[in-house]
Amino acid sequence: MDPQLTSLVVSQAETSHIEDTLERLVAETGANYSMLLDKSGQVIAASGDTDRQDITALGALLAGTFASSREVARLLKEKDFRVLFQQGVRENIFTELISEQWMLVVMFDKRTHIGLVKVLSKRATDELASILERVKLESRAKDQIISTNFRTSVEDTIDLLFKD
């Protein structure tokens, strides 16, 4: 990953590719929910229960958990932990790393078998890795979106909102 790249621009076409992959994963595993996060905790796309209100906080927390496990790996001189599994009474969460930069999260309950989630998530992460590789390349041409006008308007909004 180019550390100097400041923004990841996900086009409409690539978003729908990502959503297709997530939807297929949810449909084939019978999971409740699936999402793609970047390592900073931003939710790039999600699929499944559409009434979830808490995905922003979930994204932040799950990315935090993964970042923390990466540090644990470092201390153990392990390259990284590619997969995390959280088992609950009702719901389970399976998280798999994609190209060191993103995470695929699958939430499922007892109707879904973990083995199936593992196998199909592997396929999904391979697909997502190649989509995200393209997204990264395209992100260099972002100037059409972030114009000077846009920056000025954001600054005005910041002045308007962030005050005592």
Binding site: T6, V10, S11, T15, D38, Q42
Partner: peptide, 13 residues
Amino acid sequence: MALINVAAREIHC
């Protein structure tokens, strides 16, 4: 790294 989602028209920093 900021995320610019063109489809959802969202920018996250």
